[in-house]
Structure formats: structure tokens, C-alpha cells
């Protein structure tokens, strides 16, 4: 599933830092891969996902993809009338697009979720929040990973 990332890493190992930089820079930007857009579509259930209101904090450059801290916060008053129902995180290039799906509610007080995730390669991470009125909002961040997780032994 992450075949596209594998040769890049292999070449990086052979060519040293110059190769790594070249591979990183040459990587096509914003070409959203199918599993991610499919996962987002099935999560939204046909509804439109708008960009904004969701902040995804993740280090832009991580050395070890085995444990990457991640913080998602959503702009919401978190009252009985207006709150965040769920927060879901998706990735672009791991073997599986889902990361975590959390159900919260007005009892949370704040719409914040923090966890640690694995990243198989450099990629984009997307967080989607579902509001109490049914609208969906998203935020995303690009991460560069130098040591991959998940697939390698």
C-alpha cells in the first residue's frame, strides 16, 4: 500500500542526505491519494467537509514515525446547543487511512484530543470534526518522517 514511499526511502539510504532532500522535495504535493479521499467520503456520509475551525498540531519534521505526538483542537463553544460530536483523524500513506475516531459531547468542556500516532512515511494528516448541527470541518498538516513505522520490522 505504501509502495510509493518505499523506493524513496531506499534511495535515501543509498545516497545519503542529498538524496533524502531530493526525494523529499520532488514528492508531488497535494495529490490526495485514493484511500484518504475514500475514507473521508465514507466518514462524511455524503456531506461536504469544509476547511477550517479544526487545528491539527503535529511536529512538521519527525525523526521517528513510531510515536508522533498529535493534538487536535476544534473551535466550538461546547455548550448544550452547540458542541463537537466527534473528532476523527486520517492519514494519507499508512497501510490504513484511519487513525482514531473519538466521540465527545458537551460534557467534554473543550473540544481537544491528544494522542500519539505512527506514520509509515512523510504524508498529510487530516482531522475532521463533526458539529452538533451536522456540519463537518477539517484541518490538515504535512509531516516529514525520516524513520518510518508500521511496515518495517
Amino acid at each position: 500500500m505504501s509502495e510509493r514511499g518505499a523506493p524513496g526511502r531506499w534511495m535515501a539510504g543509498r545516497r545519503g542526505l542529498g538524496g533524502l532532500l531530493a526525494v523529499t522535495l520532488v514528492r508531488p504535493v497535494a495529490a490526495e491519494r485514493l484511500p484518504l479521499s475514500e475514507a473521508l467520503r465514507s466518514h462524511a456520509g455524503g456531506a461536504a467537509i469544509r476547511e477550517g475551525r479544526v487545528t491539527l498540531e503535529i511536529p512538521p519534521l519527525v525523526e521517528n514515525g513510531n510515536t508522533v505526538p498529535l493534538l487536535v483542537s476544534v473551535e466550538s463553544p461546547m455548550t448544550e446547543a452547540d458542541f463537537v460530536r466527534s473528532i476523527a483523524v486520517f492519514n494519507e500513506r499508512n497501510p490504513q487511512p484511519n487513525v482514531i475516531t473519538a466521540q465527545i459531547g458537551p460534557r467534554a468542556g473543550r473540544a481537544r484530543l491528544s494522542t500519539r500516532i505512527r506514520l509509515a512515511t512523510s504524508q498529510r494528516i487530516v482531522a475532521v470534526a463533526e458539529m452538533s448541527d451536522g456540519s463537518l470541518w477539517s484541518g490538515s498538516a504535512e509531516v516529514i518522517v525520516t524513520l518510518a513505522a508500521c511496515v518495517e520490522g
Binding site: 513510531n66 490504513q96 487513525v99 482514531i100 484530543l113 494522542t115 505512527r118
Partner: peptide
Amino acid sequence: AELFPAISANPFISF
């Protein structure tokens, strides 16, 4: 929360 394999070993969750 529903967790997937992309969650690190020794899962940490803060809310």
C-alpha cells in the same frame, strides 16, 4: 474512541 493500528504502542489518549 475507536483506535486503529496507526496509534502508537502504549496508547496515550488525552481529553
